[in-house]
Design a protein around this nucleic acid. Structure first.
Length: 432
DNA sequence: TCTGGGGTCCTAGGACCC
DNA sequence: TCTGGGGTCCTAGGACCC
C-alpha cells in the first residue's frame, strides 16, 4: 500500500502557523514580484478566487471582500516542509518526497493490517499537525494514483478525520464514480477536455474505456494512469538524485533594455544554477541563456531568444558557468526590444567525480581554483547569508550617492512578505 | 501600470551509420 | 523502368506535474 501525505493549502498553512490571525480568513499567497496568486486558503477558493489571477485584478474582481494577500516566503515554506518530511520519515522509512508539500510513503503489508491502516493514518496526520502546526491529508491505496484520489477525499470531507483508505473493490468503484476525470493525477487540461467531449466525465467512465483506445489517444503514460486506476501498481517514482536539467529564471519587475542590466540578472541566475549543480554533486556540459519580451504587451515588439553553449569540459564553478551564460547572452541579444523575463539553464549533467579535462578546456589548475573558490563561497554564504560572497558581475555598479552596490535579488518585489520566523534569529517570534 | 517558476516524460521526424 | 533494412542519436514540441 501507498500513503500519499499532502499538506493542505501548503503556503497559506505555513503562514498561518506563525500568524494565527489568518485562520478562518480568505488568504492568498503571491508569486515573485507579487505577480499573481499561487496559493489560496479554502475561504479564498470559496469566494471564487482563481489560481493564477494577476494580483492587480484581485481588488477589481472582488470588491468589498476582505482578502489577505502575502508575498511568497520560500525560505519559510522550505523550512516548514523539511520539518514535516522529517516527521514522515520517522514514521515510515520508505519515503519519496514528490514536491515541497507531498510525499509518498510505502507501507509494508506485513506491518499494517487492513483494519489498523486507517487508524495509523489518522494518528500520523494528528501528529504532524501537533508537532509542526501543518494540516495534512492522507490517502492510502494500492497504487499511487488511487492514493492521490483518496487524499482528495480526505481533504474534502471532515468525516474522514484526515485519512481516507481505498482498499476494497467496492470502495474503489464508489470513489471513482464520484471523482471527475479532470482531477485524476496525470490527466491534464487538454486530455480532460477531449475525454469530456467524448462523454467521459468520471474517473470510473475512464476506467471503462478499452485499453487500446486509451493507448492510442494518450500514449503509454495515459495507459499507465488507466492501469493504476484499476489497482495495478505501475508508476515507479525513481529516486533521481541528479537532475538532468537545472533552470533558474525570473520575470523582471520592470522591462530591461540594456546589456548591462541583463548581464547582472544573467550572472545571478548562472551562479544560482552553479550552486544547484554543486548541491547535487554534478557538473553540466551545456549552458543556455534565454531572454523574452512581455507577451501581454501587444503594443510592443515580441521576441524570445536563446543560445546554448557547449562547454569544453563539464563545469560546476560560478566563474565557468557565468562566463558561458554571458557569452550566450551576447550571442542572442538583439537591440530594439524590452526584455521582461530571462533565465539560465544548465543541462547534460554528469557526476562531479567523473571529471574529465580536454586540451581546449580552461587550464586544469585554473579550473581547480575556480571549483575550490566556489565551494568556499558556498560555505561563507551558508554561514553569513546567501549573497555575502559572489562574482562582481552579479552586482550593479555602486550607487554614486550611497556607494552601495545592489544585486539582482534586491530588485525583486515582495512588499507583503512575512518574516523568516524559523531561519533568521532576528525574525524569531516574540511572546509578550 | 501591474500577468510565476522549475521540472519530467513521450513521440515524431530527421540525420546519420552500416 | 526498377531504388533495402535496421538501428541509434538528437531535437523540438506537446503534455503533464506541483
Amino acid at each position: 500500500m501507498y500513503a500519499l501525505v499532502d499538506c493542505d493549502n501548503c503556503y497559506v498553512s505555513c503562514e498561518r502557523v506563525f500568524n494565527p490571525a489568518l485562520e478562518g480568513k480568505a488568504v492568498v499567497v503571491l508569486s515573485n514580484n507579487d505577480g499573481c496568486v499561487v496559493a489560496r486558503s479554502p475561504e479564498a477558493k470559496a469566494l471564487g478566487v482563481p489560481e493564477g489571477l494577476p494580483f492587480y485584478q484581485l481588488a477589481e474582481r472582488f470588491p468589498g471582500k476582505e482578502i489577505h494577500a502575502l508575498s511568497s516566503n520560500y525560505t519559510l515554506y522550505g523550512d516548514m516542509s523539511a520539518r514535516v518530511m522529517s516527521l514522515l520519515r520517522a514514521s515510515a522509512p520508505d519515503i519519496f518526497i514528490y514536491s515541497i508539500d507531498e510525499a509518498f510513503l510505502t507501507l509494508p503489508s506485513s506491518q499494517y493490517s487492513d483494519t489498523d491502516v486507517k487508524a495509523w493514518g489518522e494518528a500520523l496526520a494528528a501528529k504532524v499537525r501537533r508537532w509542526t502546526g501543518m494540516p495534512v491529508s492522507i490517502g492510502i491505496a494500492p497504487t499511487k494514483t488511487l492514493a492521490k484520489v483518496a487524499s482528495k477525499f480526505a481533504k474534502r470531507y471532515a468525516g474522514y478525520r484526515k485519512c481516507c483508505v481505498i482498499d476494497t473493490e467496492e470502495r474503489r468503484q464508489k470513489a471513482l464514480a464520484m471523482f471527475p476525470v479532470a482531477d485524476v493525477w496525470g490527466i491534464g487540461r487538454r486530455t480532460a477536455m477531449r475525454l469530456e467531449a467524448a462523454g467521459i466525465r468520471s474517473a470510473l467512465d475512464f476506467t471503462q474505456m478499452d485499453a487500446e483506445s486509451v493507448r492510442r489517444a494518450m500514449t503509454v503514460t495515459g495507459l499507465r494512469t488507466w492501469q493504476e486506476l484499476h489497482g495495478r501498481d505501475c508508476i515507479a517514482l525513481e529516486h533521481l538524485p541528479r537532475k538532468q536539467t537545472i533552470c533558474t529564471s525570473r520575470s523582471f519587475p520592470k522591462m530591461l533594455t540594456t546589456r548591462d542590466e541583463l548581464a547582472v540578472a544573467i550572472s545571478s541566475f548562472a551562479a544560482r544554477c552553479a550552486f544547484k549543480l554543486r548541491q547535487q554533486r554534478s557538473m553540466a556540459q551545456y549552458v543556455t541563456t534565454f531572454i523574452s519580451t512581455n507577451p501581454f504587451r501587444d503594443d510592443l515588439a515580441q521576441s524570445s531568444l536563446s543560445h546554448t553553449i557547449a562547454l569544453p569540459a563539464p563545469a560546476l564553478s560560478d566563474p565557468e558557468i557565468t562566463a558561458a551564460a554571458l557569452r550566450a547572452l551576447d550571442t542572442c541579444l538583439r537591440k530594439g526590444y524590452q526584455w521582461k523575463r530571462a533565465g539560465v539553464v544548465v543541462s547534460g549533467t554528469v557526476p562531479a567525480d567523473e571529471m574529465q579535462t580536454s586540451f581546449l578546456d580552461t587550464p586544469i589548475e585554473l579550473k581547480q581554483k575556480f571549483t575550490k573558490l566556489s565551494l568556499v563561497a558556498d560555505k561563507v554564504n551558508h554561514s553569513l547569508g546567501d549573497e555575502s560572497l559572489q562574482l562582481a558581475s552579479a552586482m550593479r555598479a555602486p550607487d554614486p550617492t550611497t556607494g552601495k552596490a545592489t544585486t539582482f535579488r534586491n530588485s525583486i518585489l515582495h512588499t507583503l512578505r512575512s518574516p523568516f520566523y524559523t531561519t533568521d534569529i532576528r525574525d524569531i517570534i516574540e511572546v509578550m
